[in-house]
């Protein structure tokens, strides 16, 4: 199968869109995804068989789900701007959370009501909600350690805590 040219154009357009309007009362916020499949798979058939990714895919590191996930569990063969939902449904990037919900249903529900995820701007009226991918790299979703901001200055009379003989494990 080949990538029809217009789909590649749409993919390119997605790269340029900063935010995606999803519903009337809130706005999704976050960086647009940047699929890098098109250059090769526009003319090269993709091999759908689950396998450890080797060259030329070795720059693509996927830790999501450990050994248990394969590209096509989320992506749709030959439609690089689409993602897989439940019962064979296919969604665009703007509904990427539906794909996440396949495994993380409770988290996505929490995200929808505002328990999970980050909102910016207003606390009332139209909300701006950050999409899953604005915090989680779908391929390596774990939080990456960052340097903390500076510690507060200590009082000049600060004393180091004495080591507790029998602390928690």
């Amino acid at each position: 199968m080949r990538w029809p040219l217009p789909w590649g154009m749409v993919g390119l357009l997605w790269m340029l869109l900063p935010t995606v309007a999803a519903a009337a009362e809130f706005q999704l916020d976050g960086p647009a995804p940047q699929p890098r499949c098109a250059p090769c798979h526009a003319w090269l058939d993709a091999d759908p068989r689950p396998r450890p990714l080797a060259a030329p895919h070795d720059s693509l590191k996927v830790t999501h789900g450990g050994e248990g996930l394969w590209c096509l569990d989320c992506h749709v063969q030959d439609q690089q701007e689409s993602l897989r939902g439940g019962r064979g449904a296919v969604f665009g990037w703007d509904a990427a959370h539906r794909s996440c919900a396949l495994c993380h249903g409770a988290t996505v529900t929490a995200w929808q009501v505002g328990i999970h995820g980050k909102r910016v701007g207003n606390w009332r009226g139209p909300r701006t909600i950050q999409a899953c991918r604005s915090c989680h790299d779908a391929h390596q979703p774990a939080f990456r350690p960052v340097p903390p901001d500076p510690a507060p200055p200590r009082s000049r009379f600060w004393r180091p805590p004495s080591p507790t003989p029998e602390g928690p494990p």
Binding site: P145, V146, P147, P148, A151, P152, T164, P168, P169
Partner: peptide
């Protein structure tokens, strides 16, 4: 706080690590 403790008395506000957590 060290895992296993929820006692604020064990808290350290002055941590300086290369990276957190």
């Amino acid at each position: 706080l060290p895992v296993g403790s929820r006692d604020l008395q064990d808290g350290n506000p002055y941590f300086t690590h290369q990276t957190v957590p």
